[in-house]
Design a protein around this nucleic acid. Structure first.
Length: 721
DNA sequence: AAGGCAAATGTTTTT
DNA sequence: CATTTGCCTT
């Protein structure tokens, strides 16, 4: 392959990025500007033109899907397989490292990955043992806290104990959690990253091996890196490694999970001699859509700055629909969808995007009613389903009897007469002799220390696992899984379960067998089953691209990142919903919400519909709440917006107000959102929300010191400050 | 130990 | 409203 083939399909900015020979490279790639393309072509360039060995390249992404895609595209462009190039997710690569250096990393050889579900179970157990009140200290919160620490690279031992009861309690749980994980030979997602970072930091021989090897490090979606991932990259790059980072600070939407936009903003500070390239030409959307996106994101402070443009024409205006309520909104959407379809378009070109999953419910109902096939993404993923996890637990136990979380999950599932009391005594024994549950159970049954019935049941379980284990020899993975599902009693259990739920569970079990059949191991030494289990822990089995069925796609704005659709509906653009109520006080979080709006708008290729409901019921039928129109709608210039009104405004004047789209006003009140006001009793505050209208209109005001108050506007006698 | 009923509880989620 | 959770009964 010659130079021109790599470059000819690229625009000048893309070419500049691909051939850059400064030490480091930061590519600020706007939505739809061809970032993956640049990454793939740059790798090809290095191999084909600069004669860099594939062996010396490490490319890292966040999702398995992105990693797969990158691998395929490099393969295709390069014309030969990756040959020792490391391409994978942060977690996948970290896992690989830890597998190779398990001894140096002080891990069990067969360490297992703890998914967030199992992690929560662990933490619940620990908190129970510590006699912590679940009401006062919700385990989810502890899980959140621990993960947040780990994402920052903070170990329990790094934290100073304080008098603060919250920190004290969390720290106790964290400490105990570390011990439990170690004893059980499991590591959680955050631990994969942190442990591999520590491995490098503490073991210079291992580190220098990888520094010698990976002279070229490339990172996708750089704006989503957290503190540990960033440190990981810096350590690996060392003084000599060359780093290419591709990302978009405007699309950083995972701050709440520890991602640091600062990482991309500071890149040029920490990585000297950086060449900065902006990709601003967008190949996805019409001008009108981009104008809307640019105008919204422009409101954020501290951006690296970037303005998308396109060769494409203006296209249609962005449509805005003010719905009476969520049902009206849903009906409007199904009507538009039917129009689109009757023009001969496909359903899978359509996406409906929302801030939070609960919004989808009414839409699902409407689509069902309108007979429009759809698929809701997000929510449960394949390998997270309970029936799948149970099956996998059997498989894990067969591979490793000492896997306590697997043991706990299935000792008594399907029910076989091993209750809480029995299990608790086994747990105690395990803790006493510092062994696995399996070993403790064995000791107790052979020592006759369990009642006859319990003893028989526990023994029976052990025999079951042992006998399943024998089936492993010379069966194919799929056949083995099938027998396991059979013998464990899972199949019978779910078959007997009534309703559609049971049916779909049996189907999922069959699908798992199919997944086994389609699995191709890539290592020689380790057994197929071991490799399968590892892959499954790291890949949730997101089946988004599934069978290419022609269905409308419903998903959250978060899960829409990276996707594009000719026709996009952004729904429920109301204050407190989008932007979400939780993000309203902190400016940083509000900016993240705005980025989310930017992500949403830029998903649309041809036509974007935005809608909001003047009244939205929280759950089901209640009277519902009046949320003001989302500020993000106001931030879209009037020129690209076209307000659709199907009926005359009877119930409520449009929240846009007579002064048009630019106003930030709570209609007819004389006040506006975010305004500083004074109250005779509460003092100074800021207006966060309007509710209702007419004489009953109320305002939500957050007062300094006093907190949030809801006041009747007509009697509160607020004055502007 | 297992099943049934009332009460609690509801952002976003790459791995 | 709809789903999950924990308590209570058998």
């Amino acid at each position: 392959m010659d130079v021109t083939t790599i470059l000819e399909t690229l625009n000048p900015a893309q070419q500049e990025a691909v051939v850059s020979d400064r030490k480091h490279l930061l590519v600020l790639a706007g939505a739809g500007s061809g970032k993956t393309r640049v990454l793939v072509h740059r790798i090809t360039w290095k191999v084909q033109v600069e004669n860099i060995a594939p062996h010396a390249i490490l490319a890292v992404t966040f999702t398995n899907k992105a990693a797969r895609e990158m691998r395929e595209r490099i393969d295709r462009l390069l014309g030969f397989s990756l040959k020792g190039m490391w391409v994978g997710t942060f977690h996948g690569l970290a896992h690989r490292l830890l597998k190779l250096h398990w001894r140096d990393a002080e891990l069990d050889e067969n360490f297992q990955i703890l998914d967030s579900d199992d992690q929560l179970r662990f933490i619940k157990r620990i908190m129970k043992n510590l006699n912590l009140d679940e009401q006062r200290w919700p385990p989810r919160q502890a899980q959140w806290w621990i993960n947040a620490q780990k994402d920052e690279g903070i170990r329990a031992s790094h934290i100073q104990s304080t008098d603060d009861p919250y920190i004290k309690t969390m720290l106790d749980v964290y400490r105990e959690y570390e011990v439990t994980c170690k004893r059980s030979g499991v590591i959680d997602f955050a631990e994969l990253l942190l442990r591999s970072l520590e491995l490098w930091r503490q073991n210079s021989a291992v580190l220098s091996h990888y520094q010698q090897r990976f002279k070229h490090v490339l990172v996708d979606e750089f704006q989503d890196t957290n503190a540990v991932q960033y440190a990981w990259l810096r350590v690996l790059a060392g003084k000599l490694g060359e780093v290419t980072a591709v990302g978009d600070d405007d699309q950083s939407i995972y701050g709440w999970r520890g991602a640091k936009v600062e990482n991309i903003r500071n890149f040029q500070v920490h990585f000297e001699e950086t060449h900065l390239v902006r990709l601003e030409q967008n190949y996805r959307s019409t001008s009108n859509i981009l104008r809307a996106a640019n105008a919204v994101i422009q409101r954020n402070a501290g951006r690296l700055g970037k303005k998308l443009w396109t060769d494409a024409g203006d296209g249609e205006a962005v449509a805005l629909y003010a719905a009476h309520n969520e049902h009206d909104e849903a009906r409007y959407i199904t009507d538009r969808i039917n129009n689109w379809l009757s023009d001969g378009n496909r359903r899978d070109e359509i996406a409906i995007l929302y801030r939070s999953n609960r919004i989808s419910r009414v839409l699902e109902g409407a689509l069902l009613q309108a007979d429009i096939p759809f698929r809701v993404y997000g929510g449960q993923r394949f390998y997270e389903r309970i029936e799948i996890k149970n099956t996998l637990a059997y498989l894990r136990l067969i591979v490793d009897r000492c896997n306590d979380s697997a043991y706990e999950r299935v000792v008594n599932f399907p029910p076989r007469g091993i209750g809480d009391r029995t299990l608790e005594s086994i747990r105690q024994e395990a803790r006493k002799q510092d062994s696995s549950l399996w070993e403790a159970a064995l000791a107790m049954t052979s020592g006759g220390r369990l009642s006859g019935r319990a003893s028989n049941a526990v023994e029976g379980f052990a025999e079951l696992i042992n006998s399943m284990s024998e089936d492993l020899t010379d069966a194919t993975l799929a056949n083995f899984a099938e027998t396991a599902i059979q013998k464990s009693g899972l199949k019978d259990f779910y078959r007997r379960e009534k309703g559609e739920v049971g049916l779909s569970r049996v189907e999922n079990l069959e699908e798992l067998v199919a997944a086994c059949r389609n699995f191709y191991p890539d290592e020689e030494e380790r057994s197929e089953l071991l490799q399968f289990l590892d892959q499954v822990s790291l890949d949730a089995g997101d089946r988004r691209v599934e069978d290419g069925e022609d269905a409308v796609q419903l998903m959250t704005l978060h899960s829409a990142k990276g996707l594009e659709f000719p026709l996009v509906f952004m729904v429920a653009l109301e204050e407190n919903i989008f932007p979400s109520k939780m993000s309203l006080d902190e400016p940083g979080r509000l900016e993240e919400e705005r980025r989310l709006a930017y992500v949403g708008i830029t998903r649309a290729k041809k036509k974007l519909f935005i809608s909001y409901a003047e009244n939205r019921s929280m759950y089901g039928a209640g009277s519902g709440s009046y949320n003001p129109i989302s500020r993000f709608i106001r931030e879209i210039p009037a020129g690209v917006l076209e307000e659709v009104r199907l009926r005359s405004a009877i119930t409520r004047p449009t929240s846009l107000g007579s002064r048009g789209l630019q106003s930030d006003e709570g209609e007819g009140t004389g006040f506006y959102l975010g305004q500083q006001v004074n109250h005779q009793v509460y003092g100074e505050g800021v207006i966060l929300n309007f509710e209702g209208n007419g004489p009953r209109a109320r305002v939500h005001v957050k007062f300094a010191g006093v907190g949030m108050k809801i006041l009747i506007l007509s009697s509160a006698r607020l004055s502007p400050t």
